[in-house]
Amino acid sequence: MTEFPRDAILVVVETGPSGELEKAAPGLLGAAAAVGTPIALVLASPGTGSAAAEEAAALGAARVLIAETSDPSALGVPSVDALAAAAEQVQPDAILISHSLNGRDVAGRYAARSRAAISADAIGVSRDDEGVVAHHSIYGGAYNVTSTSTFGAPVITVRQGSIEARATAQPPASETLAVTPSEKPAARIDSFEEAVAATSRPELRGAAKVVAGGRGLGSEEQFALVGQLADTLGAAVGASRAAVDAGYIPQSQQVGQTGVSVSSQLYIALGISGAIQHRAGMQTAKTIVAVNKDSDAPIFEIADFGVVGDVFKVVPQLISALEARKK
């Protein structure tokens, strides 16, 4: 086996139900390429490894290690075993993993097993004289913090949708990784139901534009206005916690400290007062627009363009003005 580059960054990516790489893969490889040579560990279901490896190379992985699990119903443990084997071979300067549910499980277990240090929920990476540094945005974007490991390669989980950089495609170079199972006890995946895209709207996490609605929409039926504006703009739909608690929209669309954090180019808040809890999930958006009938609503303190008015008057007029321009 040939040696791995000395500046290797081990990027852990898993495949989805149809064998495609997870959505975070381009960002993870993009971040890795900026600080070293990206080596991908592809965690694949049986039979999907080589196609996924080609995808990883196209996204910038200089080399790809393929680990097809022999026990697809074991939750998490085979992935950790594969990462342990890959890290042993590659001896990377850092390990990058998505800060997704599965990614956090793998990162946490691996770090506990190998006594490595974790830099959690990073929004970027850089390199200094001593190694790879993780950048974090803390308390809903109020603080910028950097962290690293006292020694050894830091295990860095990267916030989904936070990395815009993309790596140059590399010629495919992949090999199968030999993994010795740890025999650690695992939970079982008894069944899996694939999410059917009920909407053609962009996904909230990582969306370039977001239109979000709050309690001010008044009812589940009237919340449809948020979707209409979103569709006019090609935006994702979000909501405040108050709107979720009122049952206007499922919890998966909640923006805020305890929901999804977005850093979109455009964030339009309709009928959202802008409690700190909500702002923590959206105040890093590039341009913020707010429409609210309460001129004292805290959302106006951070809005680039605020309209004090009735969403049911302002938004339909906005939609027709935008539609008229399209014609």
């Binding site: 913090v145 950097t146 962290s147 951070i302 008057k313």
Partner: peptide, 26 residues
């Protein structure tokens, strides 16, 4: 190995922009 914080900085608070009151053309 332990994770250590290297730097910490406070982001300047976001400033408010334009705020208009709807007069029928907002």
């Amino acid at each position: 190995a332990r994770s250590i914080m290297l730097t910490v900085a406070e982001k300047p608070p976001r400033a408010a922009g334009v705020k208009i009151i709807d007069e029928g053309d907002a």
